[in-house]
Design a protein around this nucleic acid. Structure first.
Lengths: 196, 196, 196, 196
DNA sequence: AATGAATGAGAGTTCATTCAT
DNA sequence: AATGAATGAACTCTCATTCAT
């Protein structure tokens, strides 16, 4: 009852994706190697053929999640409103692939207990911060946002708001927060526009 | 009789506090009833005498964490800068009792898998939002912040930033984010003050 | 379906004895914690309640086997033919409790791979050698064996022959070997007495 | 064709030798087919191509070990001190190839659980006994040892001592035992020569 | 009110073996 | 002749829970 062999990388990826989904659904708390194997449709021993330990499988998930995040968080394109596009990009990503937010949340929490993961998450955060800061400076130069803002603290607040999107909250509130961010970035000091 | 009842409550509280600390340290992933009992110095069966199931113990932790959070998040005092005092209060709370942030993060993630907890967390979020919105309106009336801001989105962004504090990040970034928040609230549209 | 509780030491002993028998029957190769638990009639988790790991259980078996051996190998009594009594004692012990020979064999082999066990087995061997040497000297003084034998090498050969009893061999051969030993000890240089 | 068949045998032999070494090092307890295959540098499936089951591989090891033993234990040469040469031969063999002693020990223990192996080991023991007995008689005839010793019991004791060499013990004790054996064979009834 | 002893269910991991290629 | 991929069965160990005392 040996099933059709798949190529090495395919199977590895399948397993990582299944684990990724399981973590999104049940958290690390509810991650079971047997369920991961079952979702892919292979025997539990097959999982261990590719990943000698559960921890190695999790490393695979971390890599995957980080990669998924990084590619989206890189600033692409050169539109005038590149910063706005960026914010909307992150929002869309987290809306379209809710697993990503959930897994990132799990990773963030775990990072305080797992030094190796801690370094990865911190690197990711700093990269993220620098990317946003770069976008801010570019937007300021191009005049699409207030010319003389203090890039570091503003980047910090943007990253904070974006990070908070991975915590489950009413999505109305998320929309409102992003809108207000854009308004402030546009140089508006907070007057009521009656939009929510 | 009264003495006995009080003792009973004490022991329950001890257990809840131990569980609270364990969750902060090891996450739900690493929560073991035996460790909780051991931390209090009682037998595992004694724990089950007070909390028939692990889930009931967790409910106790949820109650405790929520209570801890609520009391601090209630707007107290009547100072002129009540909003600023509030922001500083939350920051101080999370700095002084880092367990609270960790546990809130764990609860937030778990809330998407546990409907009962989901309702509690959502209620908490809405209460939080309304509290901040109320403070904003009061501050606006008193003139300590820009009079004509749009309370709902601004409250949303404040809560988002405060919530993000429970995710582990470089604390410099947290400081920067809070500073920028205060600057924007003061009506400043983002010019560089060279502070970080 | 919780079974009647036994006192702590009883249960530990029961488990050690069961493991001892299992090792005698199936070797370390075939030692299964589940079988040990089953033989005692308890759940596998109960075994782990008393012995956190399989290795700790084995340590218990080592202690038991060594104790069993030591008590028999101590020279007791003060008869004239104390040495002969001793040889017959060891033979009887290994005949009456064949598990002991089997387990000692297993331990001897394992001792070359397990440093801790190695020390124990070596100590046991040296103790054994010294005991026999002491008996030889006493017997020589009393005149029951040749007065001027070289105690160390003779003790070495006796221990070697006794040790070989734990290896499975035709028991006739064992009897012959012991007889010849006694003959030589009596000062006989090897003439045919037609006994076997 | 002939070449091919030879290659096939080579590979079988390689695998048997690797298994032999593994058993010597880790005992049957620690024998893993994967490690055997790895030591030879072939895939685990290749091992099963040559030996359909682990048990068949072990049979190969038994054959090899027995062969190794038998060739050395056959009495060769015609020197005057053929018996002494023999004793020294066995000692040298076990000293030069310590794996052989370890494996023989493992086989001896296993023989009490495995009837087929049991017969082999018993045959080996009897052959051994008869060989030694033959040597004794020849030596007696030639006058190199006491003429009227009882060959069977003396052979039994010699085989017992030689067999005990495969159990791990302090090598001083082994030397002493062999010396004493030679002394007794020479007709000495046990007086102290102060040699060890 | 508290505990030591016990357990069922299930966790991650291992291993000899199989099979398509 | 040789292999990578896959598996069933079994392994040790864990954990929330129960129960008699």
């Amino acid at each position: 009852m040996v099933q059709k062999a798949a190529t090495r990388e395919d199977r590895r990826t399948e397993l990582v994706l299944a684990a990724y989904r399981q973590i999104a659904k049940h958290g690390f708390e509810g991650l079971r190697t047997r369920d991961v194997a079952a979702e892919v449709g292979v025997n539990i021993a097959t999982l261990h053929y590719y990943f000698p330990t559960k921890e190695k499988l999790i490393e695979g998930v971390v890599e995957h999640a980080m990669g998924r995040f990084r590619t989206t968080l890189e600033a692409r394109g050169g539109s005038a409103d590149i910063l706005g596009a960026y914010l909307r990009g992150v929002r869309r990503l987290l809306a379209e692939e809710p697993e990503l937010g959930a897994v990132m949340g799990e990773l963030a929490l775990r990072s305080s207990r797992d030094p190796a993961l801690g370094r990865i998450v911190q690197d990711m955060n700093e990269t993220w911060h620098r990317t946003v800061r770069g976008l801010l400076r570019r937007a300021a130069k191009e005049g699409s946002i207030s010319r003389d803002l203090d890039a570091d603290p503003v980047a910090a607040i943007i990253v904070a708001v974006l990070a908070s999107l991975s915590l489950p909250r009413a999505s109305v509130r998320n929309s409102q927060a992003i809108h207000q961010l854009e308004r402030w970035l546009a140089g508006d000091s907070g007057r009521d526009h009656s939009s929510n």
